[in-house]
Amino acid sequence: MTARLPANILIGAVLVALVAGAAVLSAVWTPYPYAAIDVANKFAAPSATHWLGTDQLGRDLVSQLMAAAGNSMTVAVVAVGIGCSVGTVLGLLAAARGGWVEEIIMRLSDLGFAFPALLFAIMLAAAFGPSLSMVVIAIAFINIPTFARVSRAAANQIWRREYVFAARAAGMSSFAISRDHVLPNIAAPVIVQATIEFAVAILVEAALSYLGLGAQPPAPSWGRMLAEAQTLMYLAPQLAIWPGMCIVTAVLGFGLLGDGLRDISDPRLARQRSA
């Protein structure tokens, strides 16, 4: 193993940094207020004042894209954060308790596979009305089983280690063992999964906002920008390009990063690769 980072981690990290940077920056500064309408300046071509031009209402494209990045990342962070925490706790519990507790948690997590995130979000939006928080809840919910599985599988391995036997022999409770010994040791697979789920969350948010079930106007969202651009396809095809590029950049970035991290954190895979 050389010290050089694999290409996918490097490229992934750069893309993620780009999107995350734009997202953070948008909280304090965008070239224009993203919702500022300037009808006299609609469909402006890219220029020094509007780097990527303006849309049908004269809104600055760069500002909208940046604000949308903030929105997208917030949804991903909150949703995956909730799904990851709850799922990991359930996975740890399943591994620590075993028996019927494990059985129930795992059977319930099977249910997660019956509902694709998008379908679940559609159901919530239909029942409670479309909003970004419904999107967050849906993605979080669908993430719980995924993380429960990943963390349980990893935790079960740790529970077979000798230092856990030692800790049990020393009279540590299973809660304390889970917290002090198991959790730190399953962090790697959980983080890898979270990175990948980040990419999925961004895709789902974009799709739902595109369908009108996510971010509501005037909240900025790549998906919603694309939905508006679709109606103007003959008039201003350029509007359909940039938001899509942003989605691809973000998803590709987290995807590459996740793949790369998995490769280096899973020695089994690494061995296969070199074989």
Partner: peptide, 8 residues
């Protein structure tokens, strides 16, 4: 292909 949303 994995990163491109179907609708886009």
């Amino acid at each position: 292909g994995i990163a491109v949303p179907a609708f886009w």
